[in-house]
């Protein structure tokens, strides 16, 4: 077990400004003992990947409410690989139809949290992702 707190980057790819969910999850993770870097809105996949690598995070969380998740979530995975962070687990949330989730998982998104998910479930899932990641290193 690690003694340092887990580090998570919460990113908003795409152009939508709906950051209520991203900010809430950031704050809830902080309250749960995580170190959280929030990118702010309207970041490109490349900017998010660069920040994740530079901040040496254990996991990346993406929030998107515009419907562009099928394009932009995989684009973040690709950008992470290019930036040398291909092993960082990525999770996501937002207005995402259930039928899109299998495709996102195939593209490498580890968990997808849709509206109404209790935050304790998100924290548990992100903790598990970070633990697995820390055990690898």
């Amino acid at each position: 077990m690690t003694t340092r707190p887990f580090r998570v980057l919460i990113g908003k790819p795409g152009l939508d400004g709906h950051d209520r969910g991203a900010k809430f999850v950031s704050r809830a993770l902080r309250d749960a003992g995580f170190e959280v870097v929030y990118t702010g809105i309207r970041r490109t996949p490349e900017e998010i990947a660069a920040a994740a690598v530079q901040e040496d995070v254990d996991a990346v969380g993406l929030s998107l409410l515009s419907g562009a998740h099928n394009e932009l979530f995989p684009a973040v995975i690709a950008a992470l690989e290019k930036a040398g962070g291909g092993d960082i687990p990525v999770f996501g949330g937002g207005v995402i139809p259930a039928e899109d989730i299998p495709g996102l998982k195939r593209a490498g998104i580890r968990s997808v949290f849709t509206p109404g998910t209790p935050v304790k479930d998100i924290i548990a899932s992100v903790t598990a992702l970070c633990q697995a990641q820390a055990a690898k290193v």
């Binding site: 795409g14 562009a68 684009a75």
Partner: peptide, 8 residues
């Protein structure tokens, strides 16, 4: 604009 054209 990648992925966002015509979406919302």
């Amino acid at each position: 604009a990648r992925g966002e054209v015509g979406k919302v």
